Computed example of a mutant assay.
Amino acid sequence: MGVINLTPDSFSDGGLFNTPERALRQASKQLKAGATVLDLGAQSTRPGAEEVGAAEEIRRLIPALQQIRAAHPQAVLSVDTFLAPVAEAALEAGANWINDVSGGRRDPAMLPLIAEAGCPFVLMHSRGNSKTMDGLTDYGTDVVKSVLQALEEASDCAELAGVQRDQLIWDPGLGFAKTTEQNLQLLQELERLLQPGVPLLLGPSRKRFIGAVLDEPRAKARLWGTAAVCTRAVGAGVAVLRVHDVAPIVQITQMASALWPIG
């Protein structure tokens, strides 16, 4: 899954792809490099980010989404949003997936919309919002158990709203309301998060915890740390990797898949 941020303030590439023309060029580049899904986001979810609201998200998102869809009619397009009006506009404009960092928490209209649309839904674990999540990292001694329980509970809520289990893709939410040590524990014990019939998505790309381990403050310089995490993910059986640097990660995952063939 290639990341395309249509924002001026995302943590590692804000402002690089925030016009439809730039977004289309990046989409074409990522698809050529081997991305099988593109994830478009028009609201930064980095720690401390200001929420811009549905109208501004839609203004940023839809022209780029329409251009990418027209140029690449067969591409699988995901939209990263926690607001139902944005998700609805995106699906009408040709999006295939919705990727909700709140797991359906933030907007009560989201789960009924997903149920009606019948589309894949990335249900991510998080707590609070961009302003508060760094203070919500108390999971006791077993963060993996807590995240797994929260994902199950969120899935139950989704199913009660009419979402089918086979629409769901789980994301443990690396970097969202988690310390460096907690992110590492989740990665070390990824297999505990694998549940029958629910693919697992992981978004490690350029994250702050990688910078902490490598003592690397520059987000774009964290490629090799990201690569190490992706190799671990392939070995564990993760289904989708959400990354910025598609071309090198495609090669890395191809090699890792040859070393740890799934099944």
Rank of each mutant, 00 (worst) to 15 (best):
Lys32Asp: 15
Val234Gln: 04
Trp170Asp: 00
Gly104Arg: 02
Ala177Lys: 02
Ile4Asn: 07
Gln74Ile: 10
Leu193Met: 08
Leu190Gln: 03
Glu159Pro: 02
Asp80Phe: 00
Pro248Ala: 12
Leu136Ile: 06
Gln74Phe: 11
Arg127Met: 08
Asn18Lys: 04
Val213Asn: 06
Pro204Cys: 07
Ser146Ala: 15
Thr19Ser: 12
His244Arg: 08
Gln26Glu: 15
Glu152Trp: 09
Ala33Leu: 05
Asp166Gln: 15
Ile262Lys: 14
Ile249Thr: 13
Leu151Ala: 02
Glu57Trp: 02
Leu174Thr: 08
Asn183Gly: 03
Glu191Ala: 08
Trp260Val: 12
Gln254Val: 08
Gln251Val: 07
Cys157Phe: 10
Asn5Ile: 07
Ile249Asn: 08
Phe176Arg: 03
Ser28Cys: 08
Pro120Leu: 09
Glu152Leu: 12
Arg232Lys: 15
Gly128Trp: 00
Glu191Val: 06
Trp224Gln: 15
Asp245Asn: 09
Ala54Arg: 09
Pro108Tyr: 04
Ile68Gly: 08
Lys32Met: 13
Asn96Phe: 01
Leu200Asn: 00
Thr137Asn: 03
Gln43Cys: 07
Thr226Asp: 12
Gly48Tyr: 01
Trp97Thr: 00
Ala71Ser: 14
Ala150Arg: 12
Lys178Arg: 09
Glu57Gly: 05
Gly203Lys: 02
Val101Thr: 11
Asn129His: 10
Pro63Glu: 05
Gln182Cys: 05
Gln74Gly: 13
Val79His: 01
Ser130Tyr: 01
Glu159His: 06
Gln254Asn: 14
Lys178Thr: 02
Leu151Ser: 04
Gln251Arg: 15
Leu168Trp: 02
Asp100Gln: 07
Val52Trp: 11
Gly140Ser: 07
Glu216His: 11
Gly211Thr: 10
Gly203Ser: 14
Val234Asn: 02
Ala42Asn: 06
Arg69Pro: 03
Ala54Val: 09
Thr45His: 02
Phe82Gln: 13
Gly197Cys: 04
Ala35Val: 09
Leu160Cys: 12
Ser130Met: 04
